[in-house]
Structure formats: structure tokens, C-alpha cells
Write a protein that binds this DNA or RNA. Structure first.
Lengths: 132, 132
DNA sequence: CTAGAACTTGACGCCAACGTCAAAGGCAAA
DNA sequence: TTTGCCTTTGACGTTGGCGTCAAGTTCTAG
């Protein structure tokens, strides 16, 4: 199939597909005229790439990872980087949850204007008065 | 105090302070020579700004929000936008947690090469084989 | 008074995954 | 063959919160 059909099937833009190829994530053969031709398996490939992006990985990381996944062998160094990524994800979740609590404090201030004391910091307020 | 001292106290760069002023988040008076002068309260102000950034808000949103916080009155429209932000934060947390599960699948594949079946998608694998 | 640290504005750089526009060529149906 | 959609490469734009020079000015300790 050509790029437009693959884009439709995998629900991505043609621009994204060319970008993936540019980053070495997706390969294609060409027609005599130079147009890209993909096998049917490319659709799953693109979905996998999208999931890896969704897992917070960068193009470079995915480019490193894909051959390992294909070979079904992830080396120790790569595993270490995956564990790092996992740790970062965990940390980001914690950060975002703290951010959510800060927003809760603001929302509480907005919906309960009864407390005339404005807390010095949002963190103090979050610690002393749990959000509703 | 001048910009360098405020930067040290609030643990931000002078560039950041000028940027905050440019965005209308932080005000300063000037010396005869044109140098910025801040009151002591500026330190808390900067910390508040940083917390709002940490809560995932943009400069524009913070610029809208700060006067409301100062006046201790958050209007209904602003409250609505805060609730939107809160919802986005919640959604991002969910996304990140899903991303973490996908990473767990990859890590599991790396540490347990016993299962010779490579799952079609990371999500399917996450659904059928919980991470260790 | 002077050295030199601190400060000023201005402006480009950055990062990442594409969006978007442009000019030109390929491909299939009638 | 012609029509017209599809595809090609190239290259600049986007988004945000600053980092990082650069060239010039101000403040302050001695």
C-alpha cells in the first residue's frame, strides 16, 4: 500500500509517517517513480511506534529499542534505560498529582471564600486543608 | 533588593525573573539608573508563581489568575478554567500511568524472555499479563 | 576615582513531533 | 491523453519557558 492508505489505516498523518522514516523507525520500498510502498505489516508497526511514543519515549529511544524488540532480546544497558524511563514516568505522575492538589487548593479558595486567611504557599494549604 | 538577590533567594535565574515581568506576573520599581528593585514580598510572589507553573498552568493563565488570588475573589469563568485545568491534570496522570504500564510490559519482555510470543500490542499485553 | 561585579535590553537558540505550504512529479481511470 | 488526486522533497512554523551570548550601563567597595 502507499502512504495515504497506511496513514488512514493507522490513524496518523502522512507527515508523521515520513517523519518516522526520517528517524529510522519505519522503512519502505519505493516504486519506479519514487513513491513509498509499505507491506501490510506496516500498520501494526506504526501502531507499535505510536504506543512507544505514548509511553513517553523519544524517537531516538524508540529507534534504539525497535531492533531489540524485533530480535526479542533487550540487552542490559537498554534495560537500564527502560528502567530509567519508568522511574521518570513515576516521578512525573507524582509531580502531576502534586500539581493537581495545588489546583484543588485554588479551586477551594474560589468556591469557599469564607477563610479570610490566604495561605502563604499552595503547598502549605494543601498539607493543612485537604481538597474536597 | 535587586534582581540578583531575589534570584538567589527564590532559587530562580535572573532571566526567569525578567521573563515573569515580561509576562506581567511580577512587577518591579526602578532605580534612577533603570535597575529593577523588588520589595521583600517579591520572594513569596516568585515562589507562588513557580508553584502555579508547577501546577501545569501557562504564563497567560497565571497572569489571569494572580489578580484574582490577590483580590481573594475568583470569578465563575476563571473557576471554570481552573476546573478544566484540573481535569487535564487528571487526564495526564491517567495517560502517564498507562504509559508506565506499557514500559512495564517492555521491561517484562526484557527480564523474562521465556514467553516466546510477542504480544501484538503493548496494551493487550498490559491487559493480559500484569506487570511484576 | 576606578575597577569590576551586577545590571540593562535585544535577540537568537533550544527541544520534539510533527503541521503546513509550495512547487513539481507520479499514477490510475475514463 | 487528459484529468485530477496522490505523492515527493524541502523548508519554515509551532509551542513555552527560559538559556545564552553580546554590547553597553550602573552600582559599589576600596
Amino acid at each position: 500500500m502507499r502512504i495515504g492508505e497506511l496513514a488512514d489505516r493507522a490513524c496518523v498523518s502522512t507527515r508523521a509517517l515520513r517523519y518516522y522514516e526520517e528517524q529510522g523507525l519505519l522503512h519502505s520500498s519505493r516504486t519506479a517513480g519514487g513513491q513509498r510502498v509499505y507491506p501490510q505489516t506496516a500498520e501494526d508497526r506504526v501502531r507499535l511506534i505510536r504506543e512507544l511514543y505514548a509511553a513517553g519515549l523519544t524517537s531516538r529511544m524508540i529507534a534504539t529499542l525497535l531492533p531489540a524488540i524485533d530480535a526479542r532480546h533487550v540487552g542490559p544497558e537498554l534495560l537500564g534505560r527502560l528502567l530509567e524511563e519508568r522511574a521518570r514516568t513515576t516521578a512525573k505522575v507524582a509531580e502531576l498529582q502534586a500539581a493537581g492538589q495545588r489546583l484543588d487548593v485554588l479551586i477551594a479558595l474560589a468556591t469557599h471564600p469564607d477563610s479570610d486567611s490566604c495561605p502563604a504557599t499552595l503547598d502549605q494549604a494543601a498539607a493543612t486543608s485537604p481538597a474536597p
